[in-house]
Design a protein around this nucleic acid. Sequence first.
RNA 1: GGUCCGCUAGCUCAGCUGGAUAGAGCAACUGCCUUCUAAGCAGUAGGUCUUAGGUUCGAAUCCUAAGCGGAUCACCA
Length: 596
Amino acid sequence: MNFQESIIQGIQLAFQNIFNHDLPLEQISLAPTKKEFEGSYTFVVFPFLKISQTTPENTGNLIGEYLKANVPAVRDFNVVKGFLNLVLNERVWLDLFQKIYSNHSLGQLPSNGQKVMVEYSSPNTNKPLHLGHLRNNFLGYSVAEILKANGYEVIKANLVNDRGIHICKSMVAYQHFGNGETPESSGLKGDHLAGKYYVKFDIEYKNQIKELISRGQSEEEAKKNAPILLEAQEMLRKWEAGDEAVVSLWKQMNSWVYAGFDATYRKMGVNFDKFYYESDTYLLGKDIVEEGLAKEVFFKKENGSVWVDLTDEGLDEKLVLRGDGTSVYITQDMGTADLKYKDFQIDKSVYVVGNEQDYHFDVLFKIMRKLGRSYGPGLYHLSYGMVDLPTGKMKSREGTVVDADDLIQEMIETAEHHTKELGKIEGFTEEQAKELYEILGLGALKYFLLKVDPKKRMLFNPQESIEFQGYTGPFVQYSHARIAAILRKADQIGVDYQTHDFSGVGELADSEAALIQILNDFERKIKMAAEEYSPSILAQYLFDLAKEYNRFYADLPIFHEKDQAIQSFRVALSALTAKTIKKGMSLLGIQVPERM
RNA sequence: GGUCCGCUAGCUCAGCUGGAUAGAGCAACUGCCUUCUAAGCAGUAGGUCUUAGGUUCGAAUCCUAAGCGGAUCACCA
């Protein structure tokens, strides 16, 4: 039994003995005490006044007295209005610290025997990645790591959208204006090369529309009749028919794009266990349509189109197969859902996709559940909000996107600039310095995108958004580097902090107890982050932890402390903090430096 | 129009699922480097939690309505 349980049980006994009332354990909860009051945990007595039949102050005092007398963990208490603040015994903190410190699998919960797939990134192959993709990729990677830490076996999947009209647009424009350009000949990254022609297509398309309108067509007509669009549509038909020249160009351009994505993924530090390609999956799902008809989950209309009726679930009727027998988006998504299960026998499946597709996934999941899929209850849409710029929403066609490669590069350069300004690269080789800039630049960027609740849309101001001070990645990284310096020195002068015997430590300072208390929260936060699919919970936690450590650091001496037992305890406390920060940051996909 | 989401300090965000005087960071101001890394610490200032009702010992949090902003509702992907 841990100390919290012993207190809760003590409260239960207090109610029995003082008020002659059986209070179920579930109704008793402790909250961390607010900073401005004395104590570590608080029991709110308001809900129990009907039982105690006396004032809040009296109730609190009576229970407090009982706990102080009967529960060893409780050293003292105070009552403010209806709040019973408990001051814990020093031993409780030291025992707790010892327990966490000797845990060799810190931040890793035992296997729960469940398998989960996290699908994220899922780019289109007609243009390079942008800021929105960064949020997606960092989120997906982090959530996958968080689930691993919670004992899941995780498969990271990337469903690449490598076919369709948008790719054909790039291809057509390349045929017209490319002049045989290659990544090698132009020095452009492959994905940027494809993106360049996607933009070219749009420019040409708009010109042709103007032209047609000037010749008397309506805007609507012109949009449909622009020759270059017709060409792209024709190309898509040829692709589907397996036309050799088209397929060969498609393969060529996609291979360039993949090389580009590969470089960006490596830079971002994300990875995948399984790639799916829509060119392989886009015909899947028709057998499920048949199955659904047989099971009468779907129904057919006069023209042969197939629908699902979700009105009883608060949604509409939704098309799952066109009248001509061809697929719509959701057809292949049904097929792919099954494919994922066939490949891995997953218990859960997480889709990291922007919230503009909320409705789509709502429909998809309801269908798969109606069809009785075993993985149905485990389907989850991790729906994240858009990243807005101060100028509004990003639009790739209007050139108002923040390019991922550019942004990462800028972040690294900013990190370099900051570091040099602070004169912190003494003793670094050039290579080490470069590595540090990358760790800091990417750390700042990832932390910035992960610290806000995924569900919410967020604002990114390139001018001022990303700082290196305060509630930022580099702040947490800095705290780690600080501790690393202490550990180096401890090793150097031979302080024994590997010991797990801290019985020689007497009184604890407030900042020490507070630090142990927050360190103790790590596991709980990892669980919470998984339940809510929210890395932001961990980001917030790591900031609080680093903040608390820095307070401790400023408050108390370590190597100037005369008492050996206290000195090695403080080093050990620092070591555990560093370990927690490192592990926690790794769950966000962020590295921490040893020096900065 | 239907459905869904958001609205908290000048700005960007927290607020543990109903508890204390609503918290951080940035920006502003004030202290602290001859002591372990000042990318740090301590402090000051900044709020009608969009509005109006309701639920109760107690509401930023739950309910209803309104306002503003956004997304979505294609035989598009």
